[in-house]
Design a protein around this nucleic acid. Structure first.
Lengths: 152, 152
DNA sequence: TTTTGTGCAAACGTTTTGCAATTAT
DNA sequence: ATAATTGCAAAACGTTTGCACAAAA
């Protein structure tokens, strides 16, 4: 591999006629660095210290650009009304805890079977996927009230 | 089976301490009757002729009630920014056309494998799922510009 | 009768947009 | 140089909510 994250970003952006800006780089890096599936708002707050001039609009716009380039997946909302994003493009599914709104990844070989079934028999030209199971994570099952280890 | 759709609705609503209203019945029937995965707005417009007094708030509220009872699944948005709903609860995935925003169903035996993998190894108590593949439907692949057979 | 749901309109929070200044190419 | 992107603020959008009336239990 000759392409680390930054180079991949630059390459893909250029492929799509888009410019490489520090904001896009920062947003992409933040997304690659975390396993938390953040929202635009979360990214905005997280990047604020490093890029004090960053605006919310730019976060939203940049995420759109990254999604358009196929560098990032939009995960939909997790019961909190905001869209979550993920830079992990490997075929996996998300486990969304409806109590604490956390999103975990889940990998299983059976996913490959679904993938090939869809690709071979749906008639669609597939561009992406989002596989989500909703439920209560182990922590929230154990906790009686709103005692999830991160956010209630 | 002794329960047709209406009876199932009544039963489930009562189970959850909710009342059986004509609006909820109409919304549920409309959802069962169509394979279109409509949004709240679409349902509102569709039911307007039959229930002229129906309000948008009631559509939104009723959909929440139906989801809470497990009678209907919330499908997320299809690139049009609005939530879609489905009364077909059988394990299947949705094919979302990102050009015409149509949602199709897709069934395959491999889905059962994923299901059992998630249930047995995730540690989550699963309450629901949404499996979506995004891409271009056959019609939109064939059409050069915005010539989808229903909505561009 | 008592409690829940409806309908209306106003509020909410997320996301998008118009525009001038800035910056990547 | 030139066209795209940023940042700001205001708008737009889907959705939710407060309240009085109506209706289900």
């Amino acid at each position: 591999m000759t392409t680390d994250g930054d180079e991949l970003l630059a390459e893909r952006l250029k492929e799509h006629g888009l410019r490489v800006t520090p904001q896009r780089l920062a947003i992409y890096r933040a997304l690659v660095a975390t396993a938390e599936h953040p929202t635009a708002q979360m990214l905005y707050e997280r990047l604020q210290p490093a890029l004090p001039s960053l605006s919310q609009a730019t976060v939203y716009n940049s995420l759109q650009a990254l999604v358009a380039c196929g560098l990032v997946h939009e995960l939909g909302d997790a019961g909190d009304g905001a869209l979550h994003y993920d830079a992990d493009l490997s075929p996996h599914l998300n486990l969304v805890c409806t109590r604490c709104h956390r999103i975990e990844d889940f990998f299983d070989p059976s996913l490959a079977l679904v993938d090939s079934a869809v690709n071979s028999t749906s008639g669609y030209r597939i561009m992406g996927a989002r596989l989500v199971y909703y439920g209560l994570c182990a922590a929230c099952q154990a906790a009686p009230a709103g005692a999830a280890s991160t956010a209630p």
